[in-house]
């Protein structure tokens, strides 16, 4: 939350990864994340391989490494949390720099760190190379209910507008000397939130009227016809296949 949402999610480009049909990219991304999440933590070499594959994809996507790293800040809270695990976990202890730490806990830290960072990186690559609207189009083609993808599309369309509205209210409050420090001073913030909800809901009704005015009858017209090609699916399957094979090999050998 917070800082991470302020950055642009999509990096404009024309790489092979950008041009892939969204459904193939999403399917490959999802399969890779599942494979990463199920890789046994003891197989450190497997995580190194996963990271190498991801680095290759980032390069192919012509994404600036700084963009990926900056957006990875979103997992920082969990990184901080992960470092507390060896102190609270039980089991056999090892001594590191004179401090007794749980061996399993240390593995736990590694496990949370590696999977959180790699998993988030996959999302960052997918979102960084696919326009928001096409992500939802892709989900729809992967049989995610249309209602969900349409609600998500509308949500993103109006998110910045509503966030701006909340921010402006906040600035207006501050301009009149409101500087709350304690929870019991929060009433004006809540009133503002309530007012913004009412305005949002009324906007929803106006948007519905605008849709009806242009002949909307309950189903959205299918306009984006750029579907994934066989080559797209093949590319996705290759990447996901390598990751999955690594995870499988790791599971067998540990």
């Amino acid at each position: 939350m917070g800082a991470g949402h302020a950055h642009a999610l999509y990096q404009h480009g024309h790489s092979t990864v950008h041009r892939m049909g969204p459904e193939a990219k999403l399917a490959a991304g999802f399969a890779s994340v599942v494979a990463i999440a199920t890789t046994p933590r003891e197989a450190v070499w497997a995580f190194a391989l996963h990271a190498a594959v991801l680095a290759a994809v980032v390069t192919a996507a012509e994404l600036p490494p700084r963009f990926v790293l900056r957006r990875l800040a979103i997992v920082l809270p969990f990184v901080a949390f992960a470092f507390t695990i060896p102190f609270v976990a039980g089991g056999e202890e090892v001594t590191v720099l004179g401090v007794g730490l749980s061996r399993d806990g240390l593995w736990g830290t590694w496990n949370v760190l590696a999977k959180a960072v790699l998993g988030a990186s996959v999302s960052i690559v997918v979102a960084g190379t696919t326009e928001e609207a096409r992500i939802f189009k892709g989900l729809e083609r992967l049989r995610v209910p249309v209602a969900i993808t349409l609600i998500a599309t509308f949500m993103l369309r109006y998110l910045t507008l509503i966030a701006d509205e909340l921010r402006r209210t906040r600035v207006a409050m501050r301009a009149r000397g409101y500087a709350p420090r304690w929870l019991w001073e929060a009433r004006p913030v809540a009133s503002a939130a309530g007012a913004v909800f009412v305005r949002s809901y009324e906007r929803g009704e106006r948007v519905h009227a605008a849709m009806l005015a242009r002949g909307f009858t309950g189903t959205m017209p299918e306009l984006d016809t750029r579907t994934a090609t066989r080559a797209d699916w093949l590319r996705g399957a290759t990447v996901a296949g390598v990751v999955a094979a690594t995870a499988l090999a790791a599971a067998v050998t540990t």
Binding site: R157, R203, P221
Partner: peptide
């Protein structure tokens, strides 16, 4: 053809092209 007071209420599709196409596609 009704053009609403707040253009943001009328432009709900992800891109201008899709938004202009929404009506005729319906």
């Amino acid at each position: 053809g009704l053009v609403f007071q707040h253009a943001d209420d009328q432009l709900f599709m992800p891109s201008v092209r899709e938004d202009v196409a929404f009506g005729p596609a319906n």
